[in-house]
Design a protein around this nucleic acid. Structure first.
Length: 367
DNA sequence: TACTCGTGGCG
DNA sequence: TCGCCAAGAGT
C-alpha cells in the first residue's frame, strides 16, 4: 500500500463511513432471492452464479436451481447431465462443474458443512479470493474482504486510487484497504453494501453522486473526478471463426448430436456436428468420417445453408452456416455421438448458439 | 502475467 | 451497430 493511500485512509472518518454505508444498505437494499437467509450453501450457489453475470439474469436460474437442488446433499447426488442442463444458457460452464465437484468434496471431507475458514474454503474448486470472502462474511459473519469489480470501482473513487483495476495484482491493494475500513460488527452488511452501492449508485458511467449515502467521504467527488475512476485498461479485440454445422435427420426421425470435449470452450455441452473454417465438401467428408464409413450412409445435404448464426463470446466470434440433411440406412456412431428424438434432444444442454440453430430448424421445417 | 472462459443488456 | 460491460477463477 502506498503512502498516499495510507494517508487517505488515516484521514477518513471510518466509523461514520461504516454507519452511513451500512444504514443505507439496510434501508435501500434490493429484495433478492438469495438474501432470504444466510445458508452457506445458498450463499455459495448465488455467489458462483453472480460471477461476471448480471443480477437480473441470475434470478430465474437461482430459483430453478434451489428448487431442483434445495440442499447441499441433493446437489452432491445429482448426475452430471442434469447439473449442466440447469446451467444451460448461463455461461462460464466450468463454474457449475467446479461447484458440483466442490460440493461433493464438502460432503465427503467436511461432513456436509461448508468450511468457515479462509484456508479451507479457498481450497474448494471454483472458490477464489472474492467468493471465499463473500461466503465467509455473508454466511458466517467473518470480517474478510470480498473484492469484486464493484468494490474496486467504489473504493477507487472514495479513496482516490488510480491503480489499473484490470491488472490482477491490483485486487490486493483493495483487499488491504477493505481490511482497514471493514465494519467488524457487520461484515456481511458492509461487504454487500459496497457491492450494492456499486450496482445502484456508484455505477461505471455517470454515477448518481447526489443520491450517494457516503459522498461526504468520497475523495473523487470532492475533487470532481469521479468519472475518471476507476482506471481500467481495455483488453484486445476478439478473434473471428467461421464454422459449418449440420442438422442431420435419420429416416426414422432421429437427430445426430455430439458431446463437446471435457475441457475448453463450452466443455461437455452438446452440439450439432460442426467443422471449422471448411467448405461444403469438407463438411460432407467430415460427416462421413464421423459416421461409420462402412455403413451405407447417404448424407443428402441441401445445396445451401438454411440459416446463418452469428454468436459473440468474450474473446471470439463465431459465424456458423447451418445445413440441413437426411441420412438413411443403419447408422453406427462414434463415441461422443448420439441419435436422439426431438423430445430427447431437448433434455440435453446446448450452448445458446446451437439452441438458436435448433429453433431456426424447427421453424424452417415445421417441426 | 496474460489469456481463456458465455451471455445478454446497453449507450 | 458494437465495444464495453457484470457479485471472477483457472491455467
Amino acid at each position: 500500500m502506498n503512502e498516499q493511500l495510507q494517508y487517505n485512509l488515516k484521514e477518513m472518518e471510518i466509523t461514520t463511513f461504516q454507519k452511513d454505508l451500512v444504514q443505507w444498505f439496510i434501508r435501500e437494499q434490493r429484495d433478492l432471492p438469495w438474501r432470504k437467509d444466510s445458508d452457506p450453501y445458498k450463499v455459495w450457489v448465488s455467489e458462483i452464479m453472480l460471477q461476471q453475470t448480471r443480477v437480473d439474469t441470475v434470478i430465474p436460474y437461482y430459483e430453478r436451481f434451489l428448487k431442483k437442488f434445495p440442499t447441499l446433499e441433493t446437489f452432491a447426488e445429482a448426475d452430471d447431465e442434469s447439473v449442466l442442463k440447469i446451467w444451460e444458457g448461463l455461461g462460464y460452464y466450468s463454474r457449475v462443474r467446479n461447484l458440483h465437484s466442490a460440493v461433493k468434496e464438502v460432503v465427503t471431507q467436511y461432513d456436509g458443512k461448508v468450511p468457515n475458514t479462509l484456508k479451507e474454503i479457498s481450497m474448494l474448486k471454483g472458490v477464489g479470493p472474492y467468493t471465499a470472502g463473500a461466503i465467509l462474511s455473508i454466511a458466517y459473519g467473518v470480517p474478510a474482504p470480498a473484492v469484486d469489480g464493484n468494490v474496486m470501482r467504489v473504493l477507487s473513487r472514495i479513496l482516490l486510487i488510480y491503480e489499473d483495476i484490470a491488472k490482477p495484482s491490483t485486487r490486493k491493494i483493495f483487499e488491504d484497504a477493505v481490511r482497514e475500513i471493514i465494519d467488524c460488527d457487520h461484515p456481511s452488511y458492509f461487504n454487500q453494501a459496497l457491492m450494492e452501492l456499486g450496482a445502484l449508485i456508484c455505477t461505471p458511467t455517470s454515477p448518481s453522486c447526489l443520491l450517494c449515502p457516503v459522498r461526504e467521504h468520497c475523495l473523487a467527488f470532492s475533487a470532481g473526478v469521479e468519472k475518471d475512476l476507476p482506471v481500467k485498461t481495455r483488453k484486445k479485440s476478439t478473434k473471428h471463426v467461421d464454422l459449418l454445422a449440420a442438422v442431420l435427420k435419420t429416416d426414422n426421425g432421429k437427430f445426430i448430436i455430439r458431446k463437446r470435449p471435457s475441457k475448453g470452450l463450452l466443455a461437455n455441452l452438446w452440439e450439432f456436428p460442426t467443422v471449422e473454417d471448411g467448405n461444403f465438401i469438407q463438411m460432407r467428408t467430415s460427416l462421413l468420417k464421423y459416421l461409420d464409413q462402412e455403413i451405407n450412409v447417404k448424407a443428402q445435404l441441401e445445396t445451401g445453408a438454411f440459416v446463418k448464426v452469428d454468436h459473440v463470446f468474450s474473446h471470439l466470434t463465431w459465424t456458423i452456416n447451418v445445413f440441413a440433411g437426411s441420412i438413411s440406412g443403419e447408422i453406427n456412431l462414434e463415441r461422443n455421438y448420439l441419435l436422439v428424438t426431438k423430445k430427447e434432444l431437448e433434455e440435453y444442454a446446448f450452448p445458446v448458439s446451437h439452441q438458436t440453430i435448433w429453433k431456426a430448424y424447427k421453424e424452417k421445417f415445421q417441426l
